[in-house]
Design a protein around this nucleic acid. Structure first.
Lengths: 223, 223
DNA sequence: CTGTGTGAATCAATTCACAGCT
DNA sequence: AGCTGTGAATTGATTCACACAG
């Protein structure tokens, strides 16, 4: 019995995202059924992974047939809580914050921008991507007025920890940080880091040591 | 005998990045010695991980004492190939490409922008962040003229695969993609994905299922 | 026959525990 | 005493292999 609970490994959640994305595309292009084989090939996983990942949450396929794309998409969407709209606050209105605020993928995927914040008084009050930049001081109040789920931290390295503390004090439980520092936060807050420099350094390592040694490529070659 | 070769797990490389970053900061602020304990605390790892990760490449500490920050930083820098300057081509001159081109962390970390490319003729020739936008067609030639190590793909979803193929044809062996698609590339190319939407979806999952179940937090709590 | 769902087996990564240097 | 380096033990994730359903 697969049941809902017990601990889900992070790699599983990462793959669920990719399954969901592919399924959304597949539905749009009229594909009705897909076997784990094909779903795996499109998302860089193996068929066994697809099946076991899904089995953590239930049985969604039909033996001998495969998965119904629309149905599976809806199931994963529900599992991941993507049917609940999420409100995000973008903190930092520099280049990066601006690019983020203008990203069209937000609305499309039910992430609503609740506000764009900056600590720099020369930016506060100005309009960026059709949003008025607000002072960080008003974050806590805003979060009470309108429930905010996620804080996106797009400030320089030095300010990140202080800003994160602010966000947590304002009641936010999920943080996506673009600053290259390990944030010290209470244990009931989920954090996720996106850091281009780390990624470049990571690539540098594999350029140095040979790409074919990397795990991802071993996977791909094998089957 | 730890030796240099045999396969290095990806999580190890990810942590090396973080050790390196912390060590650079530590050196700058005058810290001379650091035990695995402290290094671990600053980077979200455990002391045992720090020691075993390093042991893949050699023995850099002094028993009973700890690690010399400057020395260890230099060693990791060398291991990761960060003492070799890398040239990166940014492909896509939209919001994201522009933000990337203006990112100050590049020069600081020995990543040089070799060129900014776009397929849209209305952008080609214009100047963005002090760089002239070049046509994607000239990518191959440019890569021969000046060795380019890494392609950063900052184009919309639909164009990503074609652009990646171009980059590979131009002789590039490492790709950092911001597009939310699994790229199909030859096995000797290293790819790394950065995708904000996936990250938000990932957070959505843990908001739904309780942050305290996530692996990262189990780690932190335990010791 | 095709392809899912899943226990059992394998492979990989983390953690333990301790010998050895300072 | 304090802390590294590393085999051994453990925990966790992937892959195998097969019973079962259409």
């Amino acid at each position: 019995m697969p049941g809902e609970s017990s601990r889900i490994p992070e790699p599983v959640v990462e793959r669920l995202c990719r399954y969901h994305r592919y399924l959304s595309r597949a539905v749009r292009s009229g594909i009705v059924r897909v076997p784990s084989q094909a779903l795996a090939a499109m998302t860089g996983a193996t068929p066994e992974q697809v099946r076991k990942d899904l089995s953590h949450f239930g049985a969604f396929g039909q033996r001998g047939v495969g998965y119904d794309t629309a149905h599976l998409r809806d199931q994963i969407r529900h599992i991941m809580g993507l049917d609940t709209p999420r409100r995000v606050a973008i903190i930092g209105a520099g280049h990066l914050g601006t690019a983020l605020a203008g990203y069209p993928g937000f609305e499309a995927r039910r992430f609503e921008i609740a506000g764009l914040y900056d600590s720099n008084p020369s930016r506060v009050g100005h309009s960026v991507q059709g949003l008025r930049v607000r002072s960080i001081g008003s974050l806590a109040d805003d979060c009470q007025a309108q429930k905010v789920d996620i804080a996106i931290i797009a400030v320089p390295e030095g300010a990140a920890q202080a800003v994160a503390d602010h966000a947590v004090a304002a009641g936010i439980h999920a943080v996506l940080s673009f600053a290259p520092v390990t944030l010290e936060l209470p244990e009931d807050v989920v954090v996720r880091y996106v850091d281009m420099t780390s990624e470049l350094e990571f690539l540098s390592f594999w350029i140095e040591h040979g790409a074919e040694n990397s795990v991802e490529h071993r996977n791909r070659r094998e089957r």
